[in-house]
Design a protein around this nucleic acid. Structure first.
Lengths: 293, 293
DNA sequence: GCAAATGATATATAGGAAGTATCGCTAACG
DNA sequence: CGTTAGCGATACTTCCTATATATCATTTGC
């Protein structure tokens, strides 16, 4: 049995007339009769009652007609599904992200993506950099958002955000009222920072900055979680240096200031498998590249 | 697109190897490659990622595979459905019957039929003879159970039950204790009968019988419904003559007796449209013929 | 009883699916 | 690093079969 048989059968069942059905199918009448006979032979069932004057469906033909419609419809659906899936309009996307992207970058990307591809189910997984890379290899996530660099020939990456460092201060801190704050003003401050193993790139940036002013920061407390970190600043445990996007985490008792003369750029990159040509991923990457800030 | 494409696609998807898939399909490898290419061309979608070393499904291929399985499965289902419908194993059967068949014949037929064709939905419609014939013409019922004769070239009929007449007596009636009861013993009795228009054949049989003993029955009360008729006998409104199968309607206060020397046979027939070749009807008729009593 | 209508049959044709031979690329191996 | 085995694609041929043409057989309506 081929779909041809079903298409022909449906048409004859609709016309109840071999001649008209053949015309509608743009074939001659004899081959149509033959194909219907073939179908009946394979099913071992008579689908039509033919008198030389009238054609009508048998009970079995009636039953088969309903199924035939369903099948032909499902074929169309399958075609559409494949095309949409290929265009990245349907599917699943697992994203890894470092916590610092959760305040600005990730929400913006997600919002834009959802708008354009509402049928994609996106799952979000907060992970630190190394975990993300492992998860990419294990195909647990398809795209990661993290701080560069990534060194692997099997992965691709692209920087999608560069942002300055900001100083986070308790709101009653004396420096708040100062016009311009330079890195040298921080020599005797106590710091609250994320642990090095947790936020490698950021940590090293901060260290480099302090060393450029010939001091090592006095780290009183470490906190991996960004919410907690800002909370500690508000609680006057110390000051901190954070990527600018953290600013959108408006926390009472914390103010943010640029550091005079600091040109540090904190970079955020997207990472994905080089061999991943999934259209879902491709669509996400394209969109993210356009949305670059 | 033809089912061939789906069958080939599914096999390649299962094997992830064109050579092995071709072997399983009993065709050579090149035509298989070509058919898959055709399919991809029609869908405008790549279904497989081919490196010269490995074949794997794309996302779209994965999605399409699920649909392809469903479609092929549904084709099998459709085939089965048509065959079963043709064999009369699936469908609907509307039966008309006169009330007197409801006690013995109809239950027995139904029981046997349901056992063999549990998937058929049977609907039952109590109607008198003329209504049944009209309903057969109107295709509201497919088979009728009634008293012959039926005179129409468009209908077929066959007698499936012959039964004697029984005398129904109130249990305290003097005739109950008599050894042999003859029709002549009934000359002075009062009768309860079904109206002539309602039970044509039966009524005429009773009249003929009485006239053979040179009297006309004294009909005190008529009752169309058989239950009511027997109830009236129990209430000593009179005696009645009924087909033997009514006996299975065991009613307190009523006893049944054969009439000595009476050879009357009450006949019940099945009637159906001559042009009805529905397998459901055919199966029912066959079974009823075998079950004849 | 003849003509029109309609589906089946017989035969011819052509379009395309399958077969054969071969190529091109990759990866594993000595 | 060249060689070889594996595997899918391509080129070309063959053969099957779906389609077309012509005709027949049967029914029905005038």
């Amino acid at each position: 049995m081929e779909l041809r048989h079903l298409r022909y059968f449906v048409t004859v069942a609709e016309e109840l007339h071999f001649g008209r059905a053949a015309k509608r199918l743009y074939i001659a009448q004899p081959p149509l009769s033959q194909q219907i006979q073939q179908l009946e032979e394979e099913l071992e069932v008579l689908l039509f009652k033919r008198s030389h004057r009238r054609v009508e469906l048998t009970d079995a033909g009636q039953a088969f007609l309903g199924e035939a419609y369903k099948i032909l419809d499902q074929v169309e659906q399958a075609k559409l599904l494949a095309q949409r899936t290929a265009r990245g309009e349907i599917g699943k996307l697992a994203l890894g992200f470092v916590s610092s992207t959760a305040f600005e970058l990730l929400p913006r990307l997600l919002y834009a993506y959802r708008e354009q591809y509402p049928q994609i189910h996106v799952s979000l997984h907060e992970m630190e950099k190394d975990q993300q890379i492992a998860a990419l290899f294990a195909r647990q996530i398809q795209v990661g958002l993290l701080r560069p660099d990534v060194d692997s020939s099997e992965l691709c990456s692209e920087i999608i955000l560069r942002e300055p460092l900001l100083l986070a201060l308790p709101s009653q801190h004396p420096l708040v009222s100062k016009d311009q704050i330079s890195i040298h003003d921080l020599v005797h401050e106590t710091f609250v920072l994320q642990p090095r193993h947790w936020a490698l790139g950021l940590y090293d940036h901060v260290m480099k900055l302090c060393h450029s002013a010939d001091f090592s920061p006095n780290v009183k407390q470490e906190a991996a979680d960004t919410y907690l970190l800002i909370g500690l600043v508000a609680a006057k445990m110390g000051i901190s240096l954070v990527p600018a996007s953290v600013q959108s985490l408006h926390s009472q008792g914390v103010v943010y200031r640029r550091l005079e003369g600091d040109t540090t750029q904190i970079e955020t990159a997207m990472v994905w498998r080089r061999d991943d040509d999934s259209p879902v991923v491709e669509a996400f990457l394209n969109l993210a590249q356009q949305e670059t800030f």
